[in-house]
Design a binder for these strands. Structure first.
Lengths: 234, 234
DNA sequence: CGACAAACTGAATACCACTCGATATTATCG
DNA sequence: CGATAATATCGAGTGGTATTCAGTTTGTCG
């Protein structure tokens, strides 16, 4: 029985190794040539297997791509969590700033890959898998935001998904705008203002500390009135 | 000379009619099946022409798709401008609210088409044309925003493209979120809060006038009270 | 070892965008 | 009108690629 178990294990290991090789090869070919430009024959060659073998692991080219993307998003999620562990500040706004900086950087550096990710969402019905992984990724934001609400730093009446869409939507569009300018060294010059703007906007709109000068002045005025009334009453 | 002109005209008309038929057929096939799923043979059949004929009007499937998209975006731009003409209020915030409402509706109703539009931006080098038309579309926003700055309603130190990315990025992501819920009749229930949230956010962050009406009124009232009290005290 | 199963292979297949020579339609003359 | 040129149209054929499958190799167990 034991020997059988060992045999099965080795076999499984071997399959996994082969699958990993295919995935690695696929990733490099997709990155090099894009989805349409990638040839299955090239992937097979780089993975050291026959073309047909790939189809015993993945039903189609699209599904193979999907698997590559899943791995990619999982990596991003992991890294995002690592980044957040490194941020000691407990304030939601500070943490969101770190997340925004990280996410914008990722968007710009992996633009092709991320675009491919979205491009695939049409052609394939197995979208849900991809959506799950995306959901895990945005969960990092969700946790920060909810904790901010719990701590009383963010308005409790704001909807999580509204805030999330503002956050990721703005960053993605900003990444595209920055791409268009396409300055290899000037990116940082553009990225920080975008993050600063977004964070200021979040603080303004979703933050609980709302007092502007005017409101503060009104409060002072009210205090004066109250003391005057006190004078009258005394 | 006159008869020659007439002949040329008729011929041109005929070609235009045929081109329009191809475009119409292409659009319906693309909408039904997506870009990859669309068969040129099907487009030819629906347009009532031979497959080869299509290629005397458009160099490739991608270019045909591009033409369809251009028509689509041009229509959107036109309609957006019409909507804005109908909005009498001159305040930038009011006008942006109308634009956001319109844009979100469009995003949700034409989700497939718009996704296709973005999906194509990777595979094709003739992107620039598409980008031009997109630029025309967002110009509607730009004009409102700049005018708002001129009128002193919006902060003059805010960057146009930052604001634009917040606006369109948020709306696109919100549209996707709403799609996921995919309630045929409940959309409106979700759409309005998204627009309200975005507009409030804009007013908070990009607006110069921080005071809401209520606060202003309170302030006036407070002034009245204070002067009356002063009367009393003197 | 022999028998069976599982995994692998790449030549053959199916499918599709696109080409091109043949055909039909229209324009331009005498 | 008839002839000729010019233009537009067609759809069978071409090339190229994802996918399949019959045959081969590799692994397992009595």
């Amino acid at each position: 029985m034991a020997s059988k178990a060992v045999h099965v294990e080795t076999q499984r290991d071997k399959l996994e190794r082969k699958e990993a090789a295919i995935l690695r090869a696929a990733r490099s070919v997709f990155v090099d040539n894009g989805f349409d430009g990638a040839r299955m024959s090239e992937i097979a060659k780089r993975a050291g297997v026959g073309e047909g073998t790939i189809y015993s692991y993945y039903e189609s080219k699209a599904e193979l791509m999907l698997a590559v993307l899943q791995q990619f998003w999982d990596g991003l999620t992991l890294e995002a969590r690592n980044v957040m562990v490194g941020v000691k500040a407990p304030e939601a706004i500070k943490r969101l700033e770190a997340l925004a900086t990280y996410h914008l950087e990722i968007l710009i550096q992996n633009a092709d890959f991320i675009n491919l990710s979205f491009a695939l969402r049409r052609n394939n019905s197995e979208v849900s898998v991809s959506r799950d992984h995306l959901r895990q990724y945005v969960a990092v934001f969700d946790e920060i935001f909810c904790r901010g609400q719990d701590r009383g730093e963010l308005r409790p009446d704001s909807l999580l998904w509204h805030a999330r869409d503002v956050f990721y939507g703005t960053l993605e569009y900003s990444a595209r705008s920055i791409e268009v300018v396409a300055d290899s060294k000037g990116n940082d010059r553009l990225q920080k203002p975008v993050v600063d703007n977004l964070i200021a906007l979040f603080a303004n709109h979703f933050g609980t500390v709302k007092q502007s000068n005017e409101i503060e002045k009104s409060a002072e005025q009210l205090n004066r009135i109250e003391s005057k009334l006190d004078q009258l009453l005394s």
